[in-house]
Design a binder for these strands. Structure first.
Lengths: 221, 221
DNA sequence: CAGCGGTTGTCAGCGAATTGTCAGCAGGAC
DNA sequence: GTCCTGCTGACAATTCGCTGACAACCGCTG
């Protein structure tokens, strides 16, 4: 789960990042509004934690701009100014939750999880491609109705490729999705992962586009 | 089962909380409408018991706002003013049931259970999975018709997993549901609990999805 | 109040599963 | 042929979940 944290205060940012990482999230951080907007627009995060008071562009403007541009990422707003008006503004602008500073780290985590859960509850949990069916509710992949045992990382790989079936995904993108941005995983880690998955699911499902990346084709033989 | 109680009268609140806790629910309480709205919006409760006369925001407004925001949590309304109009207003605003004060605690419990049942889509207070049958009214789990002795916490765990059968539930969610928000339980507490339940019910019922969480599958072998 | 049985969270340690790294290899591309 | 990309088996470090022991706590009983 990759989370975007937008917070200009270094100290708060550090604390939050630590807590999130301990909780198993992959966190990336931006300091100012403009950069945050760009990141959110161009990258794919499971959720965003957004401070309102930011340099270069106000948090609410960032949020409104994302929504205007069709970006549906769940947003958890942080703010020092805890007023009723702001709360309403935030929700109106399309925030999913709102947390006044100061806050306890556990509360942030709880709310973040709640936001993620609610958001996950909306998407369809079944994707079928060929003989394979991915059920993200059950966290299970089955082939001809028979469950296949995948490790968490393998499951994430297949899940991502199936969610983007019909499109070539390069290893850089996979590394971004499966690992934190600043972790220096080798592209070989992906190759190994793909190899392991193929050993379990057969050579056909994940195809290599030499020089470009991997693809799961929409319509299987 | 986590319940949100919104009630400004300390005495009533205390009585209700005691009764609910004895009945095996985890209860969290808010005193005023604004806080209640926010809690309901951001957290995940099995049901809400909502008093109408509240400080800062009227109960009906809280409810309407929840519904407007897409929050579907079952709501049981409490009110001192038992008028036909109010009843209609409550149901119109999206309440699931309506209980005039003063009420007997057993009636509150019965209605709460009814609301939970209806929301779960079950016609009765029984959930059957494989050889196991959960009776939330009797707070009893039986296997092949023979009651199994579970401790309160074990029962809550099984109950939650059975109510969400077919979905992987991670330990964070379980901790949220089994303990009140302000306790900081380790994930290991859940592992231990699962271990104890398995010792009583066998290894098959609760399955581990390594790296993701636990699941009770809808259709047992 | 002391003692008791039952409940429940914490802790430490174990064993297995997971996963990244590395080195060597295979086979296209040119 | 040579180079480059991707595949694979082996290996080791790490993580993860499970378990037994323990202690705190609670309600009950004498």
């Amino acid at each position: 789960m990759r989370i975007l944290l937008v917070e200009d205060d270094d100290r708060i940012a550090r604390d939050v990042m630590t807590a999130l990482e301990v909780a198993g999230f992959v966190v990336e951080r931006e300091r100012d509004g403009e950069a945050a907007w760009f990141r959110g627009e161009t990258e794919d995060y499971a959720a965003t934690i957004l401070d309102l008071g930011l340099p270069t562009m106000d948090g609410l403007s960032v949020l409104k701009r994302w929504r205007a541009g069709g970006c549906r990422v769940p947003v958890l707003i942080l703010t020092a100014r805890d007023t009723w008006m702001e709360r309403v503004d935030g929700i109106d602008a399309g925030a999913d939750d709102y947390l006044p500073k100061p806050f306890r780290m556990e509360e942030l985590l709880a709310r973040l999880r709640a936001v993620l859960r609610r958001h996950a509850g909306q998407g369809s949990s079944l994707i079928t491609i060929g003989a394979f069916r991915l059920d993200t509710r059950q966290m299970r992949l089955s082939r001809d109705g028979i469950p296949v045992a995948l490790t968490p990382q393998e499951f994430r790989l297949v899940s991502y490729l199936m969610h983007h079936a019909g499109r070539v995904v390069d290893s850089g993108e996979l590394i971004e999705q499966l690992y934190s941005r600043d972790s220096d995983r080798d592209a070989n880690a992906i190759e190994v992962l793909v190899g392991r998955v193929r050993k379990k699911l057969g050579q056909e499902l994940i195809q290599t586009r030499r020089g470009f990346g991997y693809i799961i084709e929409q319509d299987q033989p």
